[in-house]
Simulated assay, not measured.
Amino acid sequence: MQAAVVRAFGEPLVLEDRPDPEPGPGQIRIRVEASGLCHTDIHAAHGDWPVKPQPPFVPGHEGVGIVDKLGPGTAGISLGQRVAVPWLGRACGSCEHCLSGWETLCEQQVNTGYSTDGGHAQKSLAWARFAQPVPDGIDPREAAPLTCAGVTTYKAVKVAGVRPAQLVAVSGIGGLGHLAVQYAKIAGATVAAVDVTDDKLALARELGADLLIDARKDDVAAVLKAHGGAHAAIALAVDESAFAAAYAGLRRGGKLVMVALPAGGTVQLPIFDTVLNGTSVIGSIVGTRQDLAEVFQLHAAGRTRVIYETRPLSSVNESIADVLRGEITARVVLEP
């Protein structure tokens, strides 16, 4: 099989021919049909974060494909079934976090495309209990971005506690943001979309955003405050100044939900204002298996649209460069 491999941090990925992986106990093998390119893949390939993957490895945590081999102990999954393989490759299932519905906080978790090989390959392995069945009728190229971009923003809207008639700012309209706009609208919110490119702001309008804020020329916080301030801001732009602007645009009692992970990023919070305004600053990391099942249910019901473009796996380095230049409107989906 062919796979895109990180051999060394900061260097181009290498397309390699590798033997087909063999599933171990509790594992399945899938023939990958589509694999979304997430900014996390780029951070992984560059070794940007404090906890680093160990090269060589295959990135990709939005893999969708057909099960073509079963390891022992994989009841509930069938050959020929279409499944998605998310960031949460496996959790222990017995710690406090797992038992309380927060398996994404498990300290023993294994992350797809980071601590184990991921989906930027023709075939990949997954743990059967964490592979998510894809409902019939969902195109695998649409299911791929939903597997991370979808479930991550869906969870962020949940964590924000968004309610009807609230003002929600979505900062950064792209692979994640275009879905966050839709989930906030499904929750009944008035949505303010913040970005720095015309095409992404136009996409946000097309997907239901009520207010467009061009951060190149508008004072983001001032515009939000002119509308009463945001009840919640979902921070998706990989830029520290965007976090600060979203925070400043909150109303009293508002919530800043941090999702994007700029390399080495920090945010300075004014203690006085945070305390007196009753502001909440919350980190939100992907979503659980149940969250992903709900994301697929919403999409199967026609409630969401996935904006993507397909490219061959061989274009992975070119695609990474385009993402870093901001030239991708929403999501690149690689086809092995």
Score class of each variant (00 low, 15 high):
residue 2 Q to D: 13
residue 3 A to Q: 11
residue 6 V to T: 13
residue 12 P to G: 09
residue 16 E to A: 12
residue 17 D to W: 02
residue 17 D to Q: 14
residue 23 P to V: 04
residue 23 P to H: 07
residue 24 G to P: 01
residue 27 Q to H: 11
residue 27 Q to E: 13
residue 29 R to G: 04
residue 29 R to W: 08
residue 33 E to F: 06
residue 34 A to C: 04
residue 37 L to Q: 04
residue 37 L to G: 02
residue 40 T to K: 05
residue 40 T to Q: 08
residue 48 D to Q: 03
residue 49 W to I: 11
residue 50 P to C: 00
residue 53 P to G: 06
residue 53 P to F: 03
residue 53 P to A: 10
residue 56 P to Q: 13
residue 59 P to S: 13
residue 59 P to C: 13
residue 61 H to I: 08
residue 61 H to K: 09
residue 62 E to D: 10
residue 62 E to W: 01
residue 73 G to N: 04
residue 76 G to M: 11
residue 78 S to I: 05
residue 78 S to A: 15
residue 79 L to G: 04
residue 81 Q to Y: 07
residue 91 A to S: 15
residue 91 A to C: 14
residue 92 C to K: 01
residue 94 S to Y: 12
residue 98 C to Q: 12
residue 106 C to Y: 03
residue 109 Q to V: 00
residue 109 Q to S: 10
residue 114 Y to N: 11
residue 116 T to Y: 11
residue 118 G to R: 09
residue 123 K to D: 00
residue 130 F to I: 05
residue 131 A to K: 10
residue 132 Q to H: 14
residue 133 P to W: 12
residue 134 V to S: 10
residue 135 P to M: 13
residue 136 D to C: 03
residue 142 E to V: 11
residue 145 P to Q: 05
residue 145 P to D: 07
residue 148 C to K: 09
residue 149 A to Y: 01
residue 159 V to C: 01
residue 162 V to G: 06
residue 163 R to L: 14
residue 166 Q to W: 05
residue 167 L to C: 10
residue 167 L to S: 05
residue 171 S to L: 00
residue 172 G to W: 02
residue 175 G to V: 08
residue 176 L to S: 01
residue 178 H to W: 13
residue 180 A to I: 08
residue 182 Q to I: 08
residue 183 Y to N: 11
residue 188 G to Y: 04
residue 192 A to Q: 12
residue 196 V to Y: 00
residue 196 V to S: 03
residue 196 V to T: 13
residue 199 D to H: 15
residue 200 K to F: 07
residue 201 L to Y: 00
residue 205 R to H: 14
residue 206 E to P: 01
residue 208 G to L: 03
residue 210 D to L: 02
residue 213 I to H: 03
residue 213 I to L: 01
residue 214 D to E: 08
residue 217 K to T: 13
residue 217 K to F: 00
residue 225 K to R: 15
residue 225 K to I: 10
residue 228 G to H: 02
residue 228 G to I: 02
residue 231 H to V: 03
residue 233 A to N: 08
residue 238 V to Y: 01
residue 241 S to G: 07
residue 242 A to E: 00
residue 245 A to F: 02
residue 245 A to G: 06
residue 246 A to T: 01
residue 247 Y to M: 07
residue 248 A to F: 00
residue 250 L to K: 07
residue 253 G to P: 09
residue 253 G to R: 12
residue 255 K to P: 00
residue 256 L to A: 00
residue 259 V to E: 04
residue 260 A to R: 12
residue 261 L to F: 06
residue 269 L to N: 08
residue 271 I to P: 00
residue 273 D to G: 05
residue 275 V to C: 05
residue 275 V to W: 06
residue 277 N to Q: 14
residue 284 S to D: 05
residue 286 V to D: 07
residue 287 G to F: 02
residue 288 T to P: 05
residue 290 Q to D: 15
residue 290 Q to N: 12
residue 290 Q to T: 15
residue 291 D to I: 10
residue 293 A to G: 11
residue 297 Q to K: 14
residue 301 A to S: 15
residue 305 R to P: 01
residue 305 R to Q: 15
residue 307 I to E: 14
residue 307 I to N: 15
residue 308 Y to V: 07
residue 309 E to S: 12
residue 309 E to W: 00
residue 311 R to L: 05
residue 313 L to G: 09
residue 314 S to G: 13
residue 316 V to G: 07
residue 317 N to R: 02
residue 320 I to L: 05
residue 321 A to H: 09
residue 321 A to F: 07
residue 321 A to W: 07
residue 328 I to E: 06
residue 330 A to Y: 12
residue 332 V to Y: 14
residue 333 V to W: 11
residue 333 V to I: 11
residue 335 E to H: 09
residue 335 E to N: 12
residue 336 P to H: 09
